[in-house]
Simulated scan of single mutants.
Amino acid sequence: MSYVDGFVAAVPTANKEKYIQHARDAAAVFKDHGVLKMVECWGDDVPDGKVTSFPIAVQCQPDETVVFSWLVWPSREVRNQAMPKIMEDPRLKPDVNPMPFDGKRLIYGGFSVLIDE
Rank of each mutant, 00 (worst) to 15 (best):
P12G: 05
I20L: 15
F30P: 01
I20V: 14
D25T: 13
D5H: 14
V8R: 04
V4P: 05
P12H: 05
A28H: 11
A14V: 14
D25Y: 12
V35N: 03
V8H: 06
A14D: 12
N15D: 08
I20E: 14
A28E: 10
Y3Q: 08
K18D: 11
A26E: 03
A9P: 07
A23T: 04
D32K: 12
V8W: 07
F30V: 01
N15Q: 07
A10G: 00
I20R: 14
G34K: 03
H33M: 02
G34Y: 01
A14P: 11
A27H: 07
A23W: 00
V8K: 06
H22C: 09
R24M: 14
D32N: 13
A28K: 13
A14G: 13
F7E: 01
N15P: 08
V8N: 04
K31I: 06
K16G: 01
A26I: 05
V11F: 00
A14K: 14
P12D: 01
Q21V: 10
A26L: 11
P12R: 07
I20M: 10
A26C: 08
R24V: 13
T13D: 15
I20C: 10
F30M: 02
G34P: 01
V29Q: 01
A23G: 03
K31H: 13
V29C: 00
K31G: 06
R24D: 13
G6Y: 13
H33W: 05
A26W: 07
A14L: 14
A23L: 00
K16S: 04
A28I: 15
H22A: 10
Y19S: 02
E17G: 05
F30K: 02
A28N: 13
V29M: 00
V4H: 08
H33R: 03
H33F: 04
Y3N: 07
E17A: 15
A28D: 09
I20Q: 13
H33S: 03
A23Y: 02
K16P: 00
A10V: 00
Q21H: 10
H22V: 13
A9C: 06
G34R: 03
Y3G: 05
K16R: 09
G6I: 15
A27N: 11
V4W: 06
R24L: 14
H22W: 12
F30W: 02
D25Q: 15
E17K: 07
K16Y: 04
N15C: 06
V35Q: 04
V29A: 00
V35W: 03
R24N: 12
V29L: 01
Y3P: 05
D32Y: 07
F7Q: 03
K18L: 12
A26V: 08
F7G: 02
Q21P: 03
A9R: 11
G6M: 11
D5E: 12
V4D: 11
D32E: 10
V8G: 05
E17M: 11
D25S: 15
A28Q: 11
T13F: 14
A27P: 04
N15M: 05
H33V: 02
A28S: 15
N15R: 08
G6S: 13
